[in-house]
Design a protein around this nucleic acid. Structure first.
Lengths: 214, 214
DNA sequence: CCTACCGATCGGTAGG
DNA sequence: CCTACCGATCGGTAGG
């Protein structure tokens, strides 16, 4: 009755949405309306909050009528879950790839910070900010799957901190240290404006310099 | 026609609300209903967000009927502004007092961090978290007064960073350093649960240790 | 995916 | 501060 409503690889087209392909609109020649809804919802949820965004807002932005998003998602909360999962799957892939690479701890940290900043601050990357700041709007039954992915994300950062500690580049690598470090970066989503002031590269450099000894 | 709707010192009773004193309810013998509305709203805005909180929620929590909060506030946004101002006025007073004290840079930093953690994390201290995470719900015309207070708050922290730099306790005291440092602390409002795990004193110690050299 | 719609809820107000 | 209320909007659904 209820197969998992989201594909785990964003590159693969969703099966259910393809069941009855509608006429393609001007806005989207390839007809992947579900992905459009997720992308647009991420932006609106970030700009106006989950409660401040209406289904009608979302529908209008992708050129649908107000009832149509419910053809793709059971309810509004499921859209929120899909947004968060989309961001985590992409971010986790990038993170795990970096952690598996053969760089020095310092280089690896710089790459990881740069990658995470991209995930949180780059234009069009609204998925993780929504995860970070709209968490309370996600019903508990939908939180479980997201938490699982988030734990894997945190684990990678914990490994990074451990390596930095071992290389004597930081003084502390406990859980609080990780929360403070990631908090500093995540909070940048509240003040950083793309295209104004620092570039992401410059911000990554300053962040590394601020946190690492030597 | 429009005198400033909020007193600047929370200790002084509001003048307009006292104009026509209603019967005191059980919940509040001293009859300061306006302060009750602000305190309760802060908690609800933090728990459920500004858009997720209804006037009826607020009214019910202080034992009013749904239309009555509008006797004290022009609209819902004015309540939000009052919540933010309440937090900033209190936080600013504490901060400026600490900065004016005669402590060593390290001691002063520890005291300041501890004070800010109290402001952001202690039970019943929901004002600043609302400021930090519901900012987008505040209409531009109401933002001005809050920004003024916030700038003074940031200025104190900037002074603190400058002193730490001079004492060679941190490597960088630019604006980005300040944003990263305060971001790390402010983000703790997202994960810290009072009464669980670390105490505020322990967290303050770990935060100081994490950020300061030597 | 659209049309047409429903029941519930919301911010806010008039008048006392 | 309450009573009584309004117009607008919202999430969601039936049926095609």
């Amino acid at each position: 009755m209820s197969t998992p409503p989201f594909p785990h690889t964003p590159t693969k087209a969703p099966k259910r949405a393809a069941r009855k392909r509608p006429l393609a609109t001007v806005a989207d020649a390839d007809g992947n309306r579900r992905a459009d809804l997720i992308r647009v919802s991420a932006r609106l949820f970030r700009e106006k909050g989950f409660d401040g965004t209406t289904i009608r807002d979302i529908a209008a932005e992708v050129g649908m009528r107000s009832g149509s998003p419910f053809y793709h998602f059971k309810n509004k909360q499921e859209i929120l879950a899909a947004v968060m999962e989309e961001g985590l799957v992409a971010g986790l892939e990038a993170t795990e790839k970096i952690m598996a690479s053969a760089q020095s701890p310092r280089e690896k940290f710089r790459t990881l910070v740069r990658s995470h900043l991209e995930t949180v601050l780059a234009e069009g990357h609204d998925f993780i900010p929504v995860l970070l700041y709209e968490w309370r709007s996600l019903p508990p039954d939908l939180q479980a799957r997201i938490i699982e992915l988030k734990d894997r994300y945190d684990l990678q950062w914990q490994h990074m901190l451990n390596q930095l500690k071992q290389a004597k580049l930081i003084r502390n690598d406990g859980k609080v240290a990780r929360l403070l470090l990631l908090g500093a970066i995540n909070y940048s989503a509240q003040w950083y404006k793309p295209g104004k002031g620092l570039s992401l590269d410059q911000l990554a450099d300053q962040t590394v310099e601020f946190f690492l000894s030597n």
